[in-house]
Amino acid sequence: MTDHLDATDRAVINALQGGFPVSERPFAEAAAPLGLTEQQLIDRIADLRARGVLTRFGPLFKPEALGGEAVLCAMTVPADRFDAVAEQVNAWPEVAHNYARDHTLNMWFVVAADSPRRCREVCAEISELTGLTVLPMPKLHEFHLDLRLTA
């Protein structure tokens, strides 16, 4: 399934999902244990980004600590409007993720904004534009988060 990833891609992904150095030459530091040169690592990460394997390379912040909020929302979207509504919803830069799921509530998206107030505004705007009810499911407690994957 991951045949489009070669051994170096996998090594880079598996080694660099956390703990990237905060130092003057971080790519050189991270490249050494992988047996790569600084430039080879930079090129490889740029390539993984260009291929869409990485959404980005950098820090993952805790939104609440930045005054922001990320809220999971669900909608029931008629099948014949699904693609059009997905396009409308995705046009908001605050919409970070959007997935179709197999349930009556069939569209699940995350509104991530720099304030809880902006999150609520975006939900209201989406509801108004699409004419559909947006159900926000704000987070009450986080028990575990570790999205590191083994490639």
Partner: peptide
């Protein structure tokens, strides 16, 4: 406040 720092992987592509 930075919960992790490095490659943010799209799981589907991985």
């Amino acid at each position: 406040i930075i919960r992790r720092f490095g490659a943010i992987v799209r799981h589907h592509e991985a």
